[in-house]
Design a protein around this nucleic acid. Structure first.
Length: 432
RNA sequence: GGAGAGAUGGCAGAGCGGUCUAAUGCGGCGGUCUUGAAAACCGUUGACCCAAAAGGUCCGGGGGUUCGAAUCCCUCUCUCUCCGCCA
């Protein structure tokens, strides 16, 4: 949620920035400012009346103590009249605040000056490309064939248990998940991030805090009986740890990391991109989140990008980094870098991480603040990124490293996985 | 699931219809003393709305009673104790 004062200060600049995000309804900005003027007027009127009521009530108490019953009665009449007058003002004030807030929540975050103006993924700027695309041996196949050959992910049984898009990892496939999660968490904690294991369901207030509600309600699984939502990413519970808190300035930056499964309905996606592990309803991810001083957030964004970059390097996969254009960025982000790894058998790039600075867009909703040197409360900036989302990493590891007699794993995973490669299953293994 | 108790400022904790502009303690900040620190003493110390003063709002959330609610009533959420069930 944007800060009102930003709209009031320079509505013209706000509209120009919204245009970069391809947000059409710029009239909303003026509407919100007009509502704010109205709100202030009503607030003043309400406060003045309330002040009179308070003063009169106090007098009644004093008159009663002195035994002047008639005078007290007269005052009571006076208060009753004031209260009658106050009621419509209070109702109107509440309605105005509600409408204003509903409209304010519709505005996306403003893009930083580094965001290119384009509209589609083709307009994203490639910042870096790293590693070389492997030349696969003859007979190489995409990961959806490899997982069957090696018997490590079973989509059919996952569909039987739950539904399509819920993979069932098996044997070495399950162990590879565990190894990757463990490795990613170790990598993050070594860089000073505190590890959390959060609840995987959240309440409404939490989902609202990070912006999943009201915007993306249809993308989350909803537990109707208890009104909980399955988390689409651990960013949601983790960022909310500090909701409604005022932290000490010297406790910044707050660096947090968490593993969680992520649940996404992916309503509306279908077609080729959903094949295999490319797009699923439940997947594993390790996330990094930082709450930082406003002046440092763009340095921290660079630091987080470099953190993920080094992690990807150790996995020995070719990848590229993109700076997203206004049209491709998320609603809440001010600047986003996407990481894509190259899937050699599919011959395409797959997104495995998205690192964003949200500035005060999330913390304004969650009221995460710190006290500055002058004793003033200021909103902190929030950032997050994946390090990393597993399924597409696994897809690329399988495809890019396939050989005639097994799948070679990068050296960094050997100790976590307990072997240097995934070998073909023995026959009796299939007969479990 | 059953029975009971509770939710107050950063923390602990009093207040149970009008002087609550919330006692007191701890912690924090500033000062005196000190070479410096500790101790002691003195002062200070919440958030939000409003350009600011004045004023208003906030004692878990929401609603109600009353001229007046931290205090009484209803309701929701959460915490604790005991019983039951259980990984």
């Amino acid at each position: 949620m944007l800060q009102l004062q930003v709209l009031r200060q320079d509505p013209k600049a706000v509209k120009e920035k919204l245009a970069i995000k391809h947000f059409a309804d710029t009239g909303l900005v003026d509407e919100i400012i007009a509502l704010d003027d109205e709100r202030k007027r009503l607030q003043l009127e309400s406060d003045t009346t309330q002040s009179k009521i308070n003063a009169a009530s106090k007098e009644i108490g004093q008159l009663m103590a002195k035994g002047e019953k008639d005078a007290a009665e007269a005052k009571k009449q006076e208060v009753a009249a004031l209260k009658t007058a106050l009621q419509p003002i209070a109702d109107k004030l509440a309605a105005t605040e509600k409408t204003q807030n509903e409209k304010l929540v519709l505005l996306p975050n403003l893009p930083s000056s580094k965001v290119p103006a384009g509209k589609t993924p083709a307009d994203n700027i490639m910042v870096k490309e790293s590693g070389t695309k492997p030349t696969l041996p003859a007979g190489s196949v995409p990961h959806w064939d490899l997982i069957k050959k090696y018997d490590i992910v079973d989509f059919e049984t996952g569909a039987k248990i739950t539904g399509s898009g819920f993979p069932l990892y098996k044997g070495k496939g399950a162990k590879l998940q565990r190894a990757l999660i463990q490795y990613f968490l170790d990598y993050n904690t070594a860089a000073g991030y505190t590890e959390y294991l959060p609840p995987f369901m959240v309440n409404e207030a939490t989902a609202y805090g990070t912006g999943q509600l009201p915007d993306k309600e249809g993308q989350m699984y909803h537990m109707q009986a208890d009104n909980f939502y399955m988390i689409p990413t651990s960013e949601v519970p983790v960022t909310n740890i500090y909701r409604d808190e005022i932290v000490k300035e010297d406790s910044l930056p707050i660096k947090m990391t968490a593993y969680s499964p992520c649940f996404r309905r992916e309503a509306g996606s279908f077609g080729k991109d959903v094949r295999g592990l490319n797009r699923v309803h439940q997947f594993e991810k390790v996330e990094i989140v930082q709450l930082v001083h406003p002046e440092k957030s763009y340095d921290v964004l660079d630091e987080m990008v470099s953190h993920v970059e080094k992690l990807l390097n150790t996995l020995e996969l070719p990848f590229r980094i993109l700076r997203l254009c206004g049209g491709d960025m998320s609603f809440a982000s001010a600047l986003t870098y996407d990481f894509e790894v190259y899937s050699a058998a599919q011959e395409k790039w797959l997104e495995v991480s998205s690192v964003s600075n949200f500035e005060t867009f999330q913390t304004n909703r969650m009221k995460i603040r710190f006290k500055d040197a002058n004793g003033k409360s200021q909103l902190v900036h929030s950032l997050n990124g994946s390090s990393l989302a597993l399924p597409r990493i696994v897809a690329c590891l399988l495809e890019n490293n396939q050989t005639a007699d097994g799948i070679k794993l990068p050296a960094v995973l050997h100790s976590y996985f307990g072997a240097g490669s995934i070998s073909l299953p023995s026959l009796n293994y299939e007969l479990y």
